[in-house]
Computed example of a mutant assay.
Amino acid sequence: MGFKNDNDKQAYWRTTVLLLLKLLVIWFVVSFGCGILLVDQLNQFQLFGFKLGFWFSQQGAIYCFVLLIFYYVYAMNKIDQRFGVDEE
């Protein structure tokens, strides 16, 4: 169990950082983009009786963040298995 060489360590680190950066970009777009920058355009639509821009700034960003956490756990388990450093 563990890394065989330094190249495996670097590849693992690069893969995990890339995953984290992708998830942070998604979170930024949803929370800042949809909740602040695009709020006027999104307010033209409604979701559950609320303007969509308001919904994203109050609820949608939180739901997206929680979903990203669950996806992060799933993806990290897959990455750990691929590099042979999983807990099982």
Rank of each mutant, 00 (worst) to 15 (best):
residue 83 F to N: 02
residue 18 L to F: 12
residue 3 F to G: 04
residue 33 G to W: 00
residue 39 V to Y: 01
residue 12 Y to T: 10
residue 39 V to I: 11
residue 68 L to W: 13
residue 84 G to H: 03
residue 35 G to Y: 00
residue 40 D to Y: 09
residue 38 L to Y: 00
residue 8 D to M: 11
residue 35 G to T: 00
residue 21 L to K: 10
residue 81 Q to A: 07
residue 30 V to L: 04
residue 50 F to R: 07
residue 22 K to S: 09
residue 84 G to M: 02
residue 55 W to M: 02
residue 30 V to W: 09
residue 12 Y to M: 08
residue 48 F to I: 06
residue 60 G to L: 02
residue 49 G to P: 10
residue 49 G to F: 11
residue 21 L to A: 12
residue 24 L to C: 06
residue 75 A to M: 10
residue 79 I to R: 10
residue 77 N to T: 11
residue 21 L to M: 13
residue 87 E to Q: 11
residue 71 Y to K: 09
residue 17 V to C: 10
residue 20 L to R: 10
residue 30 V to C: 06
residue 15 T to A: 15
residue 53 G to L: 02
residue 4 K to G: 07
residue 11 A to M: 13
residue 34 C to M: 06
residue 60 G to E: 05
residue 4 K to M: 04
residue 56 F to Y: 15
residue 18 L to K: 05
residue 2 G to M: 02
residue 31 S to Q: 05
residue 25 V to W: 02
residue 36 I to Q: 00
residue 46 Q to G: 05
residue 56 F to K: 01
residue 69 I to N: 09
residue 15 T to I: 13
residue 58 Q to M: 08
residue 46 Q to L: 07
residue 71 Y to V: 10
residue 60 G to P: 06
residue 31 S to F: 02
residue 59 Q to H: 13
residue 74 Y to Q: 08
residue 82 R to E: 09
residue 35 G to C: 00
residue 30 V to S: 05
residue 13 W to N: 14
residue 35 G to W: 00
residue 66 V to Q: 06
residue 50 F to I: 01
residue 74 Y to N: 12
residue 38 L to Q: 00
residue 78 K to Q: 12
residue 69 I to F: 12
residue 1 M to I: 03
residue 7 N to T: 15
residue 72 Y to K: 07
residue 35 G to K: 00
residue 67 L to A: 15
residue 71 Y to C: 03
residue 84 G to Q: 03
residue 17 V to G: 09
residue 50 F to D: 06
residue 39 V to N: 01
residue 5 N to R: 04
residue 86 D to C: 01
residue 64 C to P: 06
residue 68 L to S: 09
residue 5 N to H: 05
residue 14 R to Y: 13
residue 30 V to I: 15
residue 7 N to A: 15
residue 24 L to P: 01
residue 67 L to I: 15
residue 17 V to L: 14
residue 23 L to R: 03
residue 59 Q to P: 01
residue 72 Y to V: 05
residue 16 T to W: 14
residue 73 V to G: 08
residue 63 Y to M: 11
residue 9 K to L: 09
residue 69 I to G: 10
residue 87 E to C: 03
residue 33 G to P: 01
residue 2 G to V: 04
residue 85 V to A: 04
residue 54 F to N: 13
residue 51 K to Q: 15
residue 57 S to D: 04
residue 20 L to V: 07
residue 6 D to F: 14
residue 74 Y to G: 04
residue 6 D to A: 11
residue 60 G to C: 03
residue 69 I to E: 10
residue 3 F to D: 06
residue 84 G to D: 02
residue 79 I to L: 11
residue 10 Q to K: 15
residue 73 V to H: 14
residue 61 A to M: 08
residue 27 W to S: 07
residue 53 G to Q: 03
residue 69 I to S: 08
residue 55 W to F: 09
residue 19 L to K: 09
residue 7 N to S: 13
residue 6 D to I: 12
residue 15 T to K: 13
residue 53 G to S: 04
residue 67 L to T: 12
residue 19 L to T: 05
residue 44 Q to W: 11
residue 21 L to E: 10
residue 5 N to W: 05
residue 6 D to T: 14
residue 11 A to V: 04
residue 9 K to V: 14
residue 22 K to V: 08
residue 78 K to I: 08
residue 27 W to H: 08
residue 27 W to C: 03
residue 25 V to G: 00
residue 48 F to N: 08
residue 78 K to L: 13
residue 17 V to F: 15
residue 51 K to I: 04
residue 54 F to W: 15
residue 28 F to G: 02
residue 36 I to R: 00
residue 57 S to T: 02
residue 62 I to F: 15
residue 73 V to Q: 11
residue 55 W to L: 02
residue 42 L to H: 08
residue 35 G to N: 00
residue 62 I to Q: 13
residue 74 Y to R: 12
residue 7 N to H: 14
